[in-house]
Design a protein around this nucleic acid. Sequence first.
DNA 1: CATGGTGGCATTTTT
DNA 2: TGCCACCATG
Length: 791
Amino acid sequence: MQQHDLLSGLNDPQQRAVLHGDGPILVLAGAGSGKTRVLTHRVAQLISERGVRATHILAVTFTNKAAEEMRARLKALLADRAEGLWISTFHSSGLRILRHNAQLLGYTNQFVVYDDQDSKGVLKQVLKELSINEDRYPLDGFSRAIDRWKNNFVLPAEAGKMAFSVENDLQAQVYARYQELLLAANAMDFGDLLVNTVRVLREFPDVLEYYRRTLHYILVDEFQDTNKVQYLFIRLISEPRRNLFVVGDDDQSIYGFRGATISNILEFEKDFPNTQVVKLEQNYRSTGTILDAAHAVIEKNKARKAKKLWTSGDPGEKIRTFIGYDENMEAEFIASEIRKLVSEGRKHLEIAVLYRTNAQTRALEEALVRAKVPYKIYGGLKFFDRKEVKDMLAYLRLLVNPSDNQAFQRVVNTPPRGIGAQAIQAIAEESRRSSKPFLHASVAVAEENKSVKKFVELVVELKTAAAQMPLGQLIGFIVERSEYGPRLAAMKDPTAQSRIENLQELESLGRTMEREGHDKEADIKDFLDRISLTSSADIPAAESGAQRPQEKPDTVSLMTLHLAKGLEFPVVFLSGLEEGLLPHYRSIDDNVAIEEERRLCYVGITRAMQVLYFTRSYYRGMFASGGSAGSAGGARIVSRFAKDVARERMSAVGTERSQGATFMEGYPRFSFEDEDADDEGLSSWKRRQGYTRRAERPEPRANVSLDQIRNMLAPADAIQKKVEPPKEYFDKPAAALEQLAAGVRVIHPSFGSGAVESLSGSGGAATVTIRFEGFEEPKKLVYRFAKLVLA
DNA sequence: CATGGTGGCATTTTT
DNA sequence: TGCCACCATG
């Protein structure tokens, strides 16, 4: 890569940023100003022009997706010279550092990462221990307080000293005990991944020295969203060289609730004297109209650096507005408009629907399904959030970390095996008495409790298996031996089938994570790490329609405004532009919060390249029951942010549906041909519009795109084993239970072909033992589970 | 003592 | 809608 290639196509300030020498630099990059380009070209420049070794560079991003994108672009620029670059999110950087150094803090390096649910579980235990009344002091309050402390790098001891009220003091006590329990469980929560990293760096100079010696150049993306701990981390490792390259936009700071402090960016220059500042204000993404609208919204914020995006391009077309009677009609408009756009030649991929809260997806999803518009919902990792998947992962966690008390509690009686509250209480007490993990304590309890004894034996059996079996097989084994699979198979419940399928998917996912030459437990740990750090922005949670695995599916993207940051789409629907939703009612009486809502709206508008829609609805029933809750449900007025946009930049569409109601007016005037505009009239009007209130549930969302999960999770050196069923599988008839007997040849979608060895059990719990080609051990499969066909 | 069913209740944004 | 707490049953 030649110098001029690296710079070609870059404007003046972009070039200045890329060519910057040593020392701190702050790049204020407005939306759509080529931020990622600057970042990647900067790295390429360091390596190819200045001879910096890839291993001396750390680039930190916010999501795995952003990291992936950066890695891909750098690979295109640098080919194999990109090898060894450390590109990751803050949290995975922390995890990586702690995997080497956690023992310094009293953990073992095999610690597990607790997710939100796990840490709530621990908190619950603390509240019980300290006899705190949850009605008076709700759990969430403690959880938020602890979070806040962690974001600001306040350790329990200091929190106790700083306490300013009875409640606050109580929170500090809970925090202290909570940390003790985490340590005892050899577990860290999300916040700990950062807090403990900073602790290690601060308290152990040789560790800090090591990273300082290795990392000569540090780049940080989305700097406006860093919180105090993250900032401390960056500052620590970037000294004394201060080769710190941060990119951000104070107007896009939208993670205040997570402790992001705008002051990090506003005060960067104070903390790092001699900082060079480069502003990128030329926008390459949006039309003039869109930029004007964005500017009109954002300029009302007080806490911001003055800047204004400009474009050399066209003003483009006006913002299209629509108001629906309720959220279902709004959603139907969006769906039908998408169909129209597609019929005019747009690809679904070019279109995004953005919203403030996840709750808004329901109406949208229903409408899109009905209109047969293919879509993907980003946000909320539905697959890994499923109960059965979490349960199975908890088994794995317990096997690699016997101290994982949350995992223990999750699986000890799942499926039900006669170990109830009393027994668990006894185990907890024994654990406290002996200060041993629950699993150890349960061995003592097993003496007098047969059910517990059986469970302990199960764990021993699984543990032995874990040391010998490859991951995929192990998961299958656990599903069987824990009786989780058989129990599901025996259930009449129609959802049981899809849960079984999810477990099979997990198994197949595990199979692709297997690596040769690694010890079996390392595979399990890696698998768990990757899952716990894979964020909701990375993988769609649901999608409609069957997609062929390899092709990039042509689907509309649905996501929250938060998740949309950093992305761009030719067509954007900004939905729910109402007071109470955007800005959200929780922010409405707080000026600081309102400014963040405003930035959120700004982020949404600036995602659009060519066409932008504003939509809202007159009435919103927040909950299925028909919203009361003064807050989010009921009759709605237009968002103040929409009001800030000049009316002449907007133009109403879909009027045949909104019947004279106007987007900008406080109250829409619905007019009806029927004399009285009462509910009756309204409903007949709706009927005429072919408007049905609530259709059948959309397609089951169960089928997540496994391929995408696999791609996100796969360790670089994983062997990509074939998991596609053999082709002939589809041509063969399903094997009925009656047709199976010893010697019958069958095909399994993932194990391939083999011969039945024996049968046992009956009905839903019938199992088949099959010897598959290429597998040493015969496999015992639950018939209903296995989806066998006759060979 | 464990389990399964029922009824009440709360719902921003996420690494 | 989905989760949790409580209660009646085996």
